[in-house]
Each structure stands twice: as structure tokens, then as C-alpha cells.
Write a protein that binds this DNA or RNA. Structure first.
Lengths: 180, 180
DNA sequence: CGGTACATACCCAACGCTTGTTACGTACCA
DNA sequence: TGGTACGTAACAAGCGTTGGGTATGTACCG
């Protein structure tokens, strides 16, 4: 629903209809539409964390730089489901920016992601894969900025940003980081 | 209106009320709400292009790298109006992703911005400010990804991304480009 | 110069529809 | 007997949109 019509086109009846049910079912489980939206975002977040990650799953206990790369690639809309997820995520920014509570949850999510990346960056710095100079938090924030923006551009211009190019751009970015 | 309540909270009555008028005025000039939204985005785009640009205006006929930096900085939410503009812009992605025509206009806007940046990149490459190896279009796409994502993060976590840090991150990114 | 015709700008009121929400009824299951 | 899981129906509110009314110009024509 959200991936197709966005948050602006989200209605309880459409949600219920998609499940072959009625609005009574939805309101039975969610006290309000806002709670539904919140739950949807939480589910999406959890699913993104728990889904089969094509890039990261084979990484195992690899080096910090390899894991950083895997995390970055997992964010990108490289396939159909990934694009759908990202459409929802990007669309949620409109409602989140107008709802302080949702905005805070988003901020927390992105902060967690940055901290995770910062750990990989620090690891890569200790291993000499990345220059030790820059602050790991800054590098992580920059890397997340890069992929977030790449997601947006890839969603609006899929033919200009096919999966191969997305990966190539990320690799180019990481190469720049390594070169310092 | 849009900066405060987002596209999900946009109503003709609220728009009219904000001007001290009625819905009749709005419908007199716009055949539909969709046309209103379209016009608003167009105005926002034009205003962004024509507003006093604190970073770029003093650049004049400077080098390609300096101009690239100025363009990137002009996108960021470094002050109140800049943040408001970016809130609208980010919020518009939800409605645009659900409306093919709006999506196409967005894609065209971002493509134009990339092409502009690519020109500066090529200029910087010719001047030896940036390594001549990478494709200018790729560098421009990467740079725009970077700032777009930085905008999103800065909007959700303003205290973690104050103007100084935003500028520092951009400069760090450009330094990496020059070195890589 | 005066008067008529017309277009513009805007308010007002209402339309039909959709929305989120609520209340109630009913089946199933412990 | 009671609680959970739904469907059904209706509610009031708000929505975009429409049509008509009324001023204020503005152009045309004798």
C-alpha cells in the first residue's frame, strides 16, 4: 500500500481491502491511524534489519571496511523489494517531519545506523584500511549521507541509477575514503 | 504551510486561511489541488534558483571546485529559510513518488542539477583541482547524493548536524575527492 | 464623455464524497 | 460465561470541487 500510493494515499479502508477485510479489523488492532503508521514503520525497520541481506550475509567476520561496504549496499534499492522499502522510507519523511514524535524515532534510527557504521569505520582505521585521521563519527555520518541521497536519486531516476552504477558509486566513494 | 504541516496536512482551506482569504480564491487560480501543489513546487524551485545565495554569490568566476562547493553548500539547510525549503522538498518526495508526472519533474530537476555540477567538475578536472580519472557525471551524481542525504539527516537531527558541521562534512568530502 | 458589455477577482454556500472513529452485533473458542 | 476476533453500520467532520453571487475594473462604442 505505502510503496504504491505513499502516505498521502494511505487509508484504513484501502489497507483493510488489501487484506480482504474491513475497517473493523484494522481498528480492532490499532487505536488510531497514527498508531498504524507507527507500527508500519517499526515493522519496516525490523524487517529491514532481519531480512536476508544479499550483501552483508556473506561477510561474516570480515574486515571493518568490507562490513561498512556491506551495510551501505544493503540500504540501496538494488532490487524490487529494496526499492519498495525505500519508497516507503522516503515517503515517511513527509509525515515524520510534521510529527515530532515520529521525527524523534527517525532521528534515533539514523543515529543507531551511524553508530553502527562508526564502529566499522574505527575497526577499519585500526586495521589500516582507512586513514586514521578523520573522526569515525564524521566518516559514518558522511557515508550515511551518501547512501541516503543515492537512494533518493535512484528512486526518481532508476534508469540512470541501475544497480551496477549504484554499487560502483558506493565503491568509488569508499575508494576515495581509503585514499584519504 | 508545507514546511509546517507537510504535504499530508495541506488543505485548500488552510492555505486560504493563511492568506486571510477563502477557498474560492484558491480555486479561482488553480483548477485543482494537484495543480496547486505543482505550482508550489515550481515556485519553490524557481525561488531556490533565484534567492540570495550566501555561498555562491561571492564566487563569481572562480574555479570549478570553488563553484562546485558553493552549489553544494547552497543546498544545505544552513539557516531557517533553508531548513524550511528543505522540509518542503523532502516532504514532496512522498507525493511525487506516488504521482508519475511529479516524479518525472523531480527527476528532471535533479538531472539538471547534476549536469550543472558535472560542468564544474569537468572544469575542476581540467584545472587540475580534481583528479582527471573519474567520470565527471559520476562525481556529480555522487556529490549530489552526498548533499541530499546530508539534508535529510540534518533535518531530523539538527543538533547533531549544526551548520558548521554540515559545512565541514562537505569540505571533508571535497577534500577526499581531490585526494582520491 | 457617458454608458453599456464584459472580464476579472473574490466571497459565499453548498454539494457529494471520503475520511477516521465509534458503537454494536455476531461468531468462535476456552 | 466470557473474552477474543471480526463484520456491519453509522457517525460527524473534513475534504476537494462546483456554482452562483457581487463588487471592481476595463474596453468598446455612440
Amino acid at each position: 500500500m505505502l510503496a504504491a500510493r505513499g502516505f498521502g494515499g494511505l487509508t484504513l479502508r484501502a489497507v483493510a481491502g488489501e487484506m480482504g477485510a474491513t475497517t473493523g479489523l484494522v481498528t480492532h488492532y490499532f487505536p488510531s491511524k497514527r498508531a498504524l503508521v507507527r507500527h508500519a514503520l517499526e515493522v519496516l525497520d525490523r524487517r529491514s534489519a532481519g531480512r536476508p541481506r544479499p550483501a552483508e550475509e556473506r561477510v561474516g567476520q570480515a574486515s571493518g571496511l568490507v562490513r561498512l561496504r556491506a551495510v551501505l549496499l544493503d540500504v540501496l534499492p538494488l532490487d524490487g523489494p529494496g526499492a519498495a522499502n525505500n519508497r516507503i522510507w522516503v515517503g515517511s519523511w513527509d509525515v515524520a517531519l510534521a510529527d515530532p514524535e515520529l521525527a524523534a524515532e527517525h532521528a534515533a534510527r539514523y543515529r543507531r545506523a551511524r553508530e553502527r557504521m562508526a564502529g566499522y569505520v574505527a575497526e577499519a582505521q585500526r586495521a589500516g584500511e582507512l586513514p586514521a585521521g578523520p573522526d569515525a563519527g564524521d566518516v559514518a555520518a558522511a557515508a550515511q549521507s551518501f547512501v541516503l541521497g543515492l537512494v533518493v536519486q535512484a528512486l526518481f531516476a532508476p534508469e540512470e541509477f541501475p544497480p551496477v552504477r549504484q554499487v560502483a558509486l558506493v565503491d568509488g566513494y569508499l575508494a576515495g575514503l581509503a585514499a584519504g
